[in-house]
Write a protein that binds this DNA or RNA. Structure first.
Lengths: 265, 265
DNA sequence: TTCGATTTGTTCGTATGTATT
DNA sequence: TAATACATACGAACAAATCGA
């Protein structure tokens, strides 16, 4: 597994990869691992630039092409954003990003817009069974529970019931939460350096119970989408559990599988 | 926009890209366009290998790296499959592919399995309004309508109502359809060289009507997922419209957003 | 079983183009 | 304008998988 090195050891950074010293798999995977670790440890913060590709190549003692390949994968995974002439940046969990990557509710014509948000309740309490299971907590662990009502074109469409571990987000509080000028994931990122990188959404059909019906202005028993969603950060740690109820009379959950763009582009 | 050429013109293939002669954008995009066009025109058929990267590079008069980049995008879009030591192949719409790329129904534990399929009806008739709209046909255009019942672990879970234009698939018939040892998309591919590359799924909650309830062995009015799905081929042409009803009492529609794999890999 | 040819996978290096500051 | 950073394109070498002689 010996590998050639392009840069003499005395010029390589402290993180330089040594021949044979990095376990298994291709070099660019190891570079990717290290980049991810640095992101997890918040060496570079949201919206800020990473060192240039040349600098990273020197730091890890690999060629720029190898760094590029690692970065390319992280860009495909929407962890990083490249901007020609400027640099490579940690993807912001801002409104545009959320809408683009993590929000799938569209109106009848397929149009997506950012919802208006109204906070219904914010409580420090205990996890229910489902949340504990999905978040890897013991039952009745301490969590924040948040209820959010999302409206599209002034019509309530989505009810969110969020549970977040207080151990992971100790400083979360209603004041900051209300005052935020950004998305919830943006708040997680700014407040605790926790970046959501993946969502698993389990979608089922259900009948609106009394609370859901009241919030979404539906008759009790109306069929709604019931989505259980787990948000993960780097290295698969679950961060947030969310139950989402969607009134699909005027909207739909749109999922695109396969080529996102015509391959003729 | 002049570009250097690595291979003397007299050795380049007939498809060679000439300097400045290919319009706009990077070279590898043009290569990708040509590959896609060849796929659309069925120059290479499902499961079969493309020419080697070296041969393609010679044919287009570009470097292997440029061909590689074009192929890499098509692999990411799941149009092609690369196999080290063997070659690059046109992705088969086989069971494994379907399950992996185009099938999102899982059981309570998140496990995915290939469903047992039972054909309920196969008719040559006219498109309804929805299908005509999504397939870009005039209303009452000639289509095949197919009803399929999909079972998981011997329990009916999914009812599919498919509409396909007879203009696009003239030779489709119940005998071939029943006799197929492959997926429906595999049949489209083998019979008419039509490769499905993208699905748009519009997911809503609905109450099971009498027919759906009978097929899925539910009480009428039970909340089910109602999915409207349009299948597209290369260059965005809609191919098939499908209405899918899912009993989510024991299963769920699982959607993963963001990083598919831990970035530490 | 071994060996060689073929093909993709990885890594490096270099040069040039394009966008930003 | 100059410097910097990413984007594209080329070429070379070797590794790893595959297949057939």
């Amino acid at each position: 597994m010996a590998r050639r090195l392009a840069i003499a050891p005395e010029f390589r950074g402290d993180d330089a990869l040594t021949p044979g010293g990095f376990g298994h798999g291709p070099l660019y995977r190891e570079v990717k691992r290290r980049l991810t670790a640095s992101l997890r440890d918040a060496e570079w913060r949201q919206g800020q630039p990473l060192p240039s590709e040349a600098q990273l190549a020197a730091r890890y003692g690999v060629s720029m092409g190898t760094v590029r390949k690692a970065i390319t994968e992280l860009v495909a995974e929407r962890v990083l954003v490249r901007r020609q002439g400027r640099g490579t940046f940690v993807a912001n969990r801002d409104r545009d990003y959320m809408l683009d990557a993590f929000f799938n509710i569209v109106d009848a014509s397929g149009h997506k817009e950012f919802p208006q948000v109204r906070l219904l309740s914010f409580r420090a309490t205990q996890a229910d069974q489902k949340a504990a299971h999905h978040l890897g907590l013991r039952e009745r662990a301490r969590v924040f529970r948040i209820e959010n009502l999302l409206s599209l074109q002034d019509t309530p469409v989505i009810l969110d019931r969020i549970q977040v571990s207080r151990a992971v987000m100790p400083d979360l509080n209603e004041v900051d939460f209300r005052a935020r000028d950004q998305t919830i994931f943006g708040l997680y990122q700014r407040l605790h350096g926790v970046t959501v990188t993946r969502l698993d959404e389990w979608i089922r059909a259900a009948n609106a119970d009394a609370d859901v019906a009241r919030a979404l202005k539906l008759k009790q028993g109306t069929a709604v989408l019931a989505i259980e969603r787990v948000a993960y950060t780097y290295d698969e740690t679950p961060v947030e559990f969310r139950e989402r109820y969607v009134n699909t009379s005027g909207h739909a959950y749109l999922n695109v599988l396969g080529m996102k763009k015509p391959s003729s582009r």
